[in-house]
Write a protein that binds this DNA or RNA. Structure first.
Lengths: 206, 206
DNA sequence: CCGGGAGCGTATGTATACATGTTGCTCTTT
DNA sequence: AAAGAGCAACATGTATACATACGCTCCCGG
């Protein structure tokens, strides 16, 4: 069964990473409980989960605030993502079996389609799917977990960056290239391209 | 203030990583509440936090079980640790300032002392301190958080491996060597030695 | 003898009421 | 007028009572 706590957790997480909750704003338990038609208990559970994921921080008076990412934090997220995804890619190169690559191929095909339609939301969703699948191919469950947590920050960083049509097509091309290197089991080349790719999608350093 | 939930969380975490709670065993909320002289509410909070840290898994009937690490999981933890600590070390090399290294030096000195006394528990505690300090020098808070979470697994893996006196002194020497390379800001050499060091303390692959 | 379904028991999910602690404001005193 | 102490209000921490869902057992039918 899907509990209320699960539902509230998921809804709030989406709100936060989509930028619908302002960074630094406080979340009031009773207010949220009223909004979701639930009691404080499941709301509290959802908040604590978000806290341990790093999306909420404790403010004064123990209140929960939406995390406010500094410039250095955003840079850190990019570095960590590069480190972890590179590890995943190396493993994926060594371990993939034929069926594993289907999900990746489908993601890229769909990406091309939505990029032509100019659907940015769908595109970013598929982008996440691609990287998640790549981690799944590595068959490292703990790493997948860590990347999912990091993924929330990645999305939080990205909502601030407008994505145009040309950029979307370029990213789809890069995914195609990554897939190609993965198929050839060329781990060094894959890691190098993956690093460039991740740095490309990162915020420009000012 | 230190809440009951904090206390229970901490106590249970120590129990688990020290091997005092058998892997796979179930944790009963009411039983724990009675044991800690609290109600189910703070116990539940502690359990959910441990769950999101990956130390507890949901079993049948939504019961919480101590995680049961497979051989491949243990190997994965080592790989991830190497990946993340290497990233931290590279940053630490570039960014350390004189005062930053004091904590590391002290940790190694103390390690030598307790190694002579044969105090394995104290030694492993200082070992953890050393690696935690190294991450702190890199000034990457999110990475430190991830490494703390991984640290729980590392300890959980290590309790199963007996550590003898000769091994302790060898590890202290390796830490000394790492510190040396860090001081010379030689990132590639530091990362290479760190990788070897981490693989040394990992369980032998059978 | 085997298979399926209904009913019960138990542990978790949720709601609500109460306790506690922190914060900011006010009142008093120097 | 400034500073400190105390108080009041509000949000979170905790306890407890109730709801629910899942699993297990037992019984009945084939």
């Amino acid at each position: 069964m899907r509990t209320k706590a699960d539902h509230i957790h998921h809804a709030l997480r989406e709100d936060i990473v989509a930028g619908r909750r302002e960074q630094g704003s406080v979340l009031d338990e009773v207010e949220l409980a009223a909004a979701f038609g639930a009691s404080r208990t499941p709301v509290r559970e959802a908040l604590r989960r978000l806290q341990s994921e790093g999306l909420l921080t404790v403010g004064s008076r123990r209140r929960m605030c939406v995390v406010d990412l500094s410039e250095s934090h955003r840079h850190e997220v990019t570095l960590l993502r590069e480190s972890l995804e590179t590890t995943a890619a190396t493993q994926a190169c060594a371990r993939w079996e034929p069926d594993d690559l289907d999900g990746l191929r489908v993601a890229v095909l769909r990406q091309r389609r939505v990029a032509r339609d100019g659907d940015v939301t769908a595109f970013l969703g598929l982008d996440e799917t691609f990287h998640r699948e790549l981690a799944a191919v590595a068959r490292m469950p703990t790493l997948s977990l860590l990347l999912d947590q990091l993924g929330a920050f990645v999305r939080l960083v990205r909502v601030a960056i407008p994505t145009d049509d040309a950029h979307m097509l370029a990213l789809a091309d890069e995914h195609d290239d990554l897939l190609d290197r993965l198929e050839r089991r060329d781990a060094p080349a894959l890691c190098a391209a993956l690093g460039r790719h991740i740095r490309t999608t990162a915020p420009r350093r000012r």
